[in-house]
Design a binder for these strands. Structure first.
Length: 340
DNA sequence: AAAGGTGTCAACCGCTATAAA
DNA sequence: CTTTATAGCGGTTGACACCTT
C-alpha cells in the first residue's frame, strides 16, 4: 500500500501524462494531466495577488496553459491553504460515515462539514476505503443497512460503465438507487434528484419523496412527533451554499434560513443518527484501538463555523451509555436554538 | 527479479444551476 | 426570453506505487 502522504509531491513532480488524460495537450494547446510545481506556484501566486474567481480568464493572466476549470480544481482540491492533507483520522472517518448515511453521495455537503477536507478527497476515501469497509462488515454502503444476500450480483447488474472491479462498490448514484426507508427529502437546487435520508425517530414529509421534486425544492419538513416540541419545522435551504456559506442575500422569504440553521439542523440529525444506528455502534465497537478522544473531536469540530456537537458525539463509550439523553429531541432542539 | 494484479488519488468529463448581459 | 459565462457537483479515468505470485 502506498503512503498517501507521499503522493501529492510525487504527483506534482510528475510532469508527463496525467490521470484521466490520454494526451498532454489537447483542446487548443491546453495542457492536461498532473500539475508541475511551477504551475502550482504560478497559480498560487496569482490567486494570492488577485484572489479567487474569474477562472476562465485566470490561466491566461497567470501565464498558465490550463483551462480555468482545471485551475479551479487544482486550487480547490490542493493548493488552498485551508486544505488539510494526510491521513483521515478516525473521528473524521466516523463523521464521514454519519454524514454519508444522512446525505448519500453529497460529497460537497459532506466535505463542507469536515474542516480542511475536499469533496474529492472524501469521495476518493469513501470509494477506496469506507465502502469496502462497510461491505466487509456486511453493511450496504448505499443504504447503510445490512447487505442483502445477493448484494454483489444486483450491484453488478446495475453497473453502467465502470470497468474496474474496485469501482463497483462505489457505483451508487446519489439518489437513483438509494432508497432508504425513512425520509428527509433534501432537494439540491442543482440537481433534479432528491436525497432520501433515513433517520430513525423523526418523521419527514414522506409523501413527497422522490415523487415531486418541485414541491419539495429547497425544503425539509421535520415533524418532531415524538418530542415535547410538537409541530412542523420547515427548513428551506440551498444546499449549494453549504460549501462557502450562505450569501444571505435572497432571504426575502422568511421560510428561508441561514447556513447556521442548516448547520444546526444537520448537527441535530447527526446526533440523532449517532444514537440510533446499530451499525455505527457496531463500527465504534470495532475500533478498540482508536486513539480518538473527546479532545480530538472537539478540535475538529471547533474549527467548523456554527458546528457544535453535543457531548454525546465525542466518544463511542458515551454514546453507548447515555443514549437516552441524546435521543431526546428536546435536547437536540435546545442545541439548535442555542445557535441563535 | 519479473510480471501481473490491485489500490490510491489527482485530474478529467459531462452536466446543471445561477447570474448577468 | 435567450444566450453566455461562471461556478460547482458527482462520476469516472488512468498513471503510478505497492503487493502478490
Amino acid at each position: 500500500m502506498r503512503n498517501p502522504s507521499s503522493k501529492p509531491q510525487a504527483a506534482a513532480a510528475a510532469n508527463s501524462t496525467g490521470a484521466g488524460a490520454s494526451s498532454n495537450k489537447t483542446k487548443v494547446g491546453l495542457k492536461r494531466g498532473p500539475w508541475t510545481p511551477e504551475e502550482d506556484e504560478l497559480l498560487s501566486d496569482y490567486i494570492k495577488r488577485e484572489g479567487e474567481g474569474r477562472w476562465r480568464t485566470l490561466p491566461k493572466k497567470a501565464g498558465l496553459l490550463r483551462c480555468g476549470k482545471s485551475c479551479r480544481l487544482r486550487w480547490m482540491n490542493y493548493l488552498r491553504p485551508s486544505v488539510k492533507r494526510g491521513h483521515i483520522a478516525w473521528d473524521e472517518e466516523d463523521l464521514i460515515l454519519r454524514l454519508h448515511r444522512l446525505l448519500g453521495n453529497r460529497w460537497s455537503l459532506i466535505a463542507g462539514r469536515i474542516p480542511g477536507r475536499t469533496d474529492n478527497e472524501i469521495k476518493n476515501y469513501w470509494n477506496t476505503h469506507l465502502s469496502k469497509k462497510l461491505i466487509s462488515q456486511g453493511i450496504d454502503p448505499r443504504t447503510h443497512k445490512p447487505l442483502e444476500p445477493n448484494y454483489s450480483d444486483s450491484n453488478n447488474e446495475n453497473k453502467a460503465s465502470s470497468s474496474k472491479l474496485h469501482h463497483a462498490v462505489a457505483d451508487h448514484p446519489s439518489s437513483s438507487s438509494y432508497e432508504p426507508s425513512a425520509a428527509v427529502v433534501i432537494k439540491d437546487s442543482r440537481d433534479a434528484s432528491t436525497s432520501n435520508i433515513p433517520i430513525d425517530g423523526i418523521e419527514f414529509n414522506s409523501d413527497d419523496q422522490y415523487q415531486n421534486p418541485e414541491t419539495t425544492a429547497g425544503e425539509v419538513h421535520v415533524n418532531m412527533q415524538n418530542a415535547d416540541h410538537e409541530g412542523d419545522v420547515t427548513y428551506g435551504m440551498d444546499l449549494r451554499s453549504s460549501h462557502e456559506g450562505f450569501s444571505n442575500e435572497d432571504d426575502d422569504d422568511t421560510n428561508y434560513c441561514t447556513d447556521d440553521i442548516f448547520s444546526s439542523f444537520l448537527n441535530s440529525l447527526i446526533n440523532e443518527d449517532a444514537f440510533n444506528s446499530p451499525n455505527l455502534l457496531q463500527q465504534q465497537q470495532l475500533q478498540p484501538n482508536s486513539t480518538s478522544t473527546a479532545t480530538d473531536c472537539d478540535a475538529l469540530i471547533s474549527s467548523t463555523t456554527a458546528f457544535t456537537f453535543g457531548p454525546g458525539w465525542d466518544a463511542p463509550s458515551v454514546a453507548s451509555t447515555s443514549s437516552s439523553d441524546h435521543n431526546d429531541p428536546k435536547l437536540t432542539n435546545e442545541k439548535v436554538e442555542k445557535q441563535f
